[in-house]
Every structure is written in structure tokens, then in C-alpha cells.
Write a protein that binds this DNA or RNA. Structure first.
Lengths: 177, 177
DNA sequence: GTCTATAATTTGATAGAC
DNA sequence: GTCTATCAAATTATAGAC
């Protein structure tokens, strides 16, 4: 866990949210894990909303960077889709947790508005990317929605049932055409 | 909102959880909505965990009853799948919220064990039903997982983006074979 | 069954010293 | 940047009167 204190705070906050949701993480838990006092966190992130926006924004931006990298790396739409699926697989295997924005989406009704907007940004940028860089034709948007829904749902099921192979079973049904 | 006080409590609790998650609902909010004091809720449900188990168990049991009804009503696997999808569509359109157990699944890491078990029961009974009453063949389990993941993910996306047509786009890609 | 009263804990947040 | 000290609010929960 390298990086500045602010980055450490964000790393732990993201981990907590992905485990139990926005209302499940606290400044005190984060501070104890880092080894500082909870009051010190307010120096880096004045309010909890500020911290929530920061991790959601970072997550969406990092994802967008990965998507851009996929486009420049793979000319084939099949390879792009495979690499895209791998992004979600990593979330499950490496972190054994939900997609951060999938988690936030489930509680979007009670999120502070700025956090909800960042969460929406994640979903729209994913849908747009799939509908432009992977799928073609009249039903490109619909197919994009199907893929993203399947991946988010697969993460959800794999998490609650603690069965990583469920994710692979769902992934096996995903194809470009 | 008819029924006994206990049922009213469960109705409101379920609504709150489906909106913002398990850590987002409180005895005080429920009591204010009903018009009693929060202490009175403890008479019906001694602890918050008890209430959480009650609504998760009721949700899973009701769902199981619907599944049994579908089997006796429709002989065709196509019709069964269509009726199954309609169960999730109702959750979105009528309540404009997540599936209760989909919501609980996302926070399963921080749920009290009895609630997590009820949540798991919902998913296993759905997967088992789909793999027996709708799909056939070697990949029946995989196809069942794909359908449930797509539906849960579709609810998630439709909720956060506030676009009910996203659900229909995903549903359009679901078929028996 | 519901009430009042209260306890014990946790939470996000601020002020000011260092 | 981090600390101590403190605050106001919300939370689940209990005891006992009615």
C-alpha cells in the first residue's frame, strides 16, 4: 500500500465500500487501518461526500483509461471484448469484491448527488464504449447493455454465493455475435 | 398498506433496504412512517437482525411460490422464461427498486450471518429452478446463471441510470435457446 | 402492544495546539 | 499534517409503566 496518505485513505475507503456499501465505511475504521486519527482524514477529505466522490471518480477514470488502452492494443472486436471481460474478472479474483460502481449503483437512491453522478458516469462510459468499439449494427446499444448487465450481475452472484466459477459460466455466454 | 403491524414494519423495512441497503434503514424511520415509536418495533422484532432475516426470508419464500405457480401455469419453457422475466420487471416498474436479495447480495460481506444465508437461499433456489424447469442439457446451469445475472444486472443499471428501457434491452437478449 | 425514559455506542465533523 | 478534545446527532437496544 504505497502512495501518499490521501491515496492510502482512498484505497481503504474503496475497499470498504466494495465490501459493504457506502454507509458501511467510516472514517474511524480507515484511520485505524492507516494508523492515524480520524480527525486527520478531514484534512485530506473535508467531508465523507468528498471522499466518496474521490474514489468513485478515480475508479471511473481508471476504467476509462483501461478501455482506451484496449482499443489501441486490440484491433479485433473479439479480442477487445475478451480484454473487457478480463477487467471485471480481475475485480472478482484480485479483490474478491464487487465492482465499486456496481456497489454504489445498488444504493444510488440514498447517495449524495455528486457521488451518484460519478457512478452514472461509469455506466454511461462503459455502455458508450461497448456500443462504439465492440458492437456494430442497430442493436449495438442493446448488446452493450446486455454485456454490462451480465458482468455486474455475475460479480453480484459470485460474491454472495462465493463461487468464482459462476462468473465464468456467465462469461462463457458472452460473445460479439 | 394493510395487514398487521408486523407486516407493516416488514413492508417499510423491505422498501428501505431495496432503496439504500441494509445499513441504510433504521427503526426510527420505520416507526415514524407507521406512526408508532421505535421502541415498539422491538416488540415485534427484538433485533435488527431479526427484522432483516424476516424480510429476506419472506422475499425468498414469496419468490419460490411464484416460481411454483409458473410451473403449474405454463407447460412451455418459453412461456415459463417469459413469466420469470416478468417477476423482475415488476420489481423494477412497480417498486422502481432493486430486487431485495440483489441488494442484500451486494453487501453480503457485512451482513449478519443469518441474513446472508437467506440471501443465498434466494439465489440458489432461482438457479436451481431455472436449471430444472426452463433449461435442459449440459449447459443448463450455465444458462441459468446467465439469465439471473443479466436480470440482476439489468435492475442495477436501470435503477442507477433511471432508464427502464435498459431493462427491456437486456431482456430482449434472453432466450431459452 | 405501545408508551416514556434512558443507556451505550458509533458516527461525521470542528476548533485549536503542535 | 497530525494530534487532542469535544460536539451534536443518530443508532440499536432495554426497563418498566400503562
Amino acid at each position: 500500500m504505497a502512495g501518499s496518505t490521501a491515496e492510502k485513505i482512498m484505497d481503504i475507503a474503496e475497499s470498504q465500500v466494495r465490501a459493504g456499501g457506502y454507509n458501511s465505511f467510516s472514517f474511524r475504521e480507515i484511520s485505524q487501518e492507516i494508523g492515524i486519527k480520524s480527525a486527520s482524514i478531514h484534512y485530506h477529505f473535508p467531508t465523507k461526500t468528498d471522499l466518496g466522490v474521490a474514489i468513485a471518480s478515480r475508479y471511473a477514470t481508471r476504467f476509462a483509461e483501461q478501455l482506451a488502452l484496449i482499443v489501441t492494443t486490440y484491433p479485433s472486436v473479439n479480442a477487445r471484448l475478451q480484454a473487457y471481460v478480463a477487467l471485471f474478472r480481475q475485480a472478482l479474483l484480485h479483490d474478491q469484491k464487487m465492482c465499486l460502481c456496481g456497489q454504489l449503483a445498488s444504493e444510488s437512491d440514498v447517495l449524495p448527488e455528486p457521488i451518484r453522478l460519478e457512478t452514472r458516469r461509469f455506466f454511461t462510459l462503459n455502455l458508450d464504449w461497448l456500443a462504439i468499439e465492440v458492437f456494430t449494427g442497430d442493436d449495438a446499444k442493446a448488446r452493450a447493455a446486455s454485456v454490462l448487465a451480465a458482468l455486474e450481475g455475475a460479480l453480484l452472484m459470485s460474491k454472495v454465493l462465493d463461487q468464482a466459477d459462476l462468473f465464468e459460466q456467465v462469461v462463457a455466454g458472452i460473445a460479439v455475435r
